[in-house]
């Protein structure tokens, strides 16, 4: 069975790029445009990995990660967040919230593939 990945980002273009990249690697991909929507999806699906942006309306990345970690079935699921290199502060907050790792924007497609495959086999 293919591994299932949840991609959360408010920018449609980024969502689509990530989706197509991950589909190439034959992962199943579900997208959500903000943290709240993403939380809803968590209950209906069983994801092997979550990829989320930090700056989003309604519920931002940090909030989403914090909430997701409260769910029993997502206690140990790898969660990656998208960030720019300069945001050490955001990085620390996200890690504190329970994120596993990060992907630096702007990203190189091959890099994303490598990191994702490091998280789920």
């Amino acid at each position: 069975m293919n591994k299932k990945i949840l991609v959360v980002d408010d920018s449609e273009s980024i969502r689509e790029i990530l989706k197509s990249l991950l589909l190439e690697e034959s992962y199943d991909v579900v997208v959500a445009e903000d943290g709240l929507k993403a939380l809803e999806k968590l209950n209906d699906n069983s994801f092997d990995l979550i990829l989320t942006d930090l700056h989003m309306p309604n519920l931002d990345g940090i909030g989403f990660i914090t909430e997701a970690r409260k769910l029993e079935s997502y206690k140990r699921t790898p969660i990656l967040f998208l960030t720019t290199e300069t945001q050490q502060d955001a990085k620390d907050k996200a890690k504190e919230a329970g994120a596993t790792g990060w992907i630096i924007k702007p990203f190189v497609p091959s890099k994303i593939k490598t990191i994702v495959s490091r998280m789920i086999h």
């Binding site: 206690k75 140990r76 699921t77 790898p78 969660i79 890690k95 329970g98 994120a99 596993t100 790792g101 490091r118 998280m119 789920i120 086999h121």
Partner: peptide
């Protein structure tokens, strides 16, 4: 280590 979803075996694998 496990609390943020890291699987060290994947790291070793890589």
């Amino acid at each position: 280590l496990f609390s943020n979803g890291t699987n060290p075996l994947f790291i070793l694998d890589e």
